[in-house]
Amino acid sequence: MKILVPVKRVPDPATTIRVLPDGSGIATDNVKWVINPFDEIAIEEALRIKEKQGSGEVVLAAVGQQSWQEQLRTGLAMGADRALLVRTDAALDTLAIARLLAKLAEDQKPDIIILGKQAIDDDSNQVGQMLAEMLGWPQATFASKVEFQDRKCTVVREVDGGLETIGFDLPAIVTTDLRLNEPRYASLPGIMKARKKELKEIPAESLGVDLTPKLKIKKLDPPPKRQAGRKVASVEELVQVLHNEAKVI
């Protein structure tokens, strides 16, 4: 099975994010960049499918700057076979990113595309679903279990109030939720091998896609700060202040 895994470069989730004083973006000095955690789960799932089936290919894809090579190399070190970087320095919206990925999919013809349910920087949770519509494929978002029987795929989804199971024929899109798997670390031999794997750059302009953003971020503001309250000395005092002072119980 050929599996395409789009990945995004994001600030390490442990990084404290600060908005620049002029509101034009976030401070990126001292930011460590990593693969979006949900995309790491996607890479892991793709590798497990390939390992279980004993054959197949895991192709990584990204849309971004030169520096994104770093995250693609990390994914290759985890075990992916090759990577594609659609090169652009422009600020793209989710529609443009999905269109570029759809072009790659038409060219690569994967059996399944697996990606994170959301990127932890912009928290949009859109690209997988948009890609599914553009390709005219079924979608299974927020997956916590993915199973195959020939060309049939069954996915258990994390939805409000329980778990939903849906089924469909490939090709299709799956977006990953937290409990799908626990991603592996890249091994030292894996890192050595990754250096020789193919990482192909494709200029975004060459794909013939309208990249004009329809959504623009005018500015960023820091959120209002919540003031720390006070410490109480005992459980009795806690219950009393919640009752008498805060009046919430």
Binding site: P11, P13, T16, I17, R18, V19, I26, I120, D121, D122, D123, K214, L215, K216, I217, K218, K219, L220, D221, P222, P223
Partner: peptide, 16 residues
């Protein structure tokens, strides 16, 4: 809308 785990609030403008 919030971004970056609520550490930034973005003002969004959409066309179309």
């Amino acid at each position: 809308r919030p971004m970056y785990a609520g550490n930034a609030l973005a003002t969004i403008e959409m066309d179309g």
